[in-house]
């Protein structure tokens, strides 16, 4: 009987596994199990960095005022910068949404919760995509949706006033370098075609120096390195990242070297962030399907190994 079952499974394992995968993904979508997920240190780091943007902006304004009082050279330049900083007293977040539809299910919840967090705290958001034109519309829909969903409780969020979506331009390394000096030279207009100098929000943002935190959500290799080399190393901006779970192992060393303030690992990272903000969303909902899929993969690995050892013992 057992031998027959094993032989049947060996012939039909693909069909069985495919059905199980479908069930593991579909069934949790209809369940309302509230999972308790404690934010890990890497997630908490990025959460704290976003939470701390208004405080960081106030500190920057205070420091610049003190510097202005004690400096007689460069007064004009410092005053101009102070005026820009005062335009956004809650600070500015630059969010790079570098992914396309293939990694969207894992990364969209991360982008959404960071945007919601920023909008809740009144932080101005500059969103951009530097790596692929394929993700440009996706990024726009994420930003617009987050703004729409947050506005009910936290005031109306308007494009051009509370957030700006710049869209895509090719040549990401040079593009980021150019943003470091002058964002309006890298992007003459936003994604809708409005000139940046006509947008009220951009009056207070000239370059990366006016950004309090850079957050990069990406599924591409090479993009995180470019942001680290330019935004962190050259312009010394705090940098946090969210990435697909499979890429996290590659970038953990940068977390330990303090080049990253935080790192969100895949859907789990989004769920942890949602828990930290106490605002469960797509990440938390997706964790049940992920849990079921992980358990299935472990069962399959175990089953494969048991059959492998049984076959080896029979042969010997």
């Amino acid at each position: 009987m057992m031998t027959l079952l094993v032989q049947w499974f060996d012939r039909n394992y693909r069909r069985v596994i495919y059905v199980l995968v479908v069930l593991c993904v579909l069934v949790p979508a209809f369940l309302t199990v509230r999972l308790r997920i404690k934010p890990a240190g890497a997630t908490q780091g990025l959460f704290n960095a976003v939470e701390g943007i208004p405080a960081a902006r106030h500190a920057a304004i205070t420091n610049l005022e003190a510097e202005l009082a004690h400096t007689i050279t460069n007064q004009e330049k410092l005053l101009s910068r102070l005026q820009r900083l005062r335009q956004h007293t809650n600070g500015v977040l630059l969010l790079s949404l570098d992914f396309d539809p293939s990694s969207a299910p894992e990364l969209t919840p991360q982008a959404e919760i960071i945007l919601r967090h920023a909008f809740m705290r009144g932080i101005a958001v500059v969103a951009v995509i530097v790596s692929t034109p394929v993700g440009a519309q996706l990024a726009q829909s994420i930003v617009d949706r987050a703004a729409r969903e947050t506005q009910g409780r936290y005031g109306v969020k308007l494009a051009g006033r509370d957030y700006v979506y710049l869209g895509f331009r090719p040549g990401y390394f040079n593009l980021i370098m150019q943003m470091g000096e002058d964002i309006s030279r890298a992007f003459a207009s936003d994604y809708a075609g409005n000139r940046l100098e006509t947008l009220p929000m951009m009056q207070g943002i000239k370059n990366l120096h006016d950004i309090d935190l850079v957050a990069v959500i990406t599924g591409f290799v090479g993009v995180p390195e470019a942001w680290m080399q330019v935004a962190k190393t050259k312009y010394n901006r705090p940098l946090g990242m969210g990435m697909t779970a499979v890429s996290v192992a590659d970038y953990t060393p940068y977390l330990h070297s303090k080049q990253l303030v935080g790192l969100l690992p895949g859907m789990r990272g989004a769920a942890e962030y949602e828990m930290a903000l106490d605002a469960p969303g797509a990440g938390t909902r997706g964790m049940l399907a992920q849990l079921a899929s992980h358990v299935l993969i472990i069962v399959l690995i175990a089953l494969g190994n048991v059959l492998f050892f049984l076959q080896r013992r029979n042969r010997s």
Partner: peptide, 21 residues
């Protein structure tokens, strides 16, 4: 794009059963 990428899940599951030994 999402569909093509999602198909990977099925291949990964069968690979986990057959190859991860």
């Amino acid at each position: 794009m999402s569909t093509v990428f999602a198909l990977l899940a099925f291949y990964m599951m069968t690979a986990a059963y057959r190859a991860m030994r």
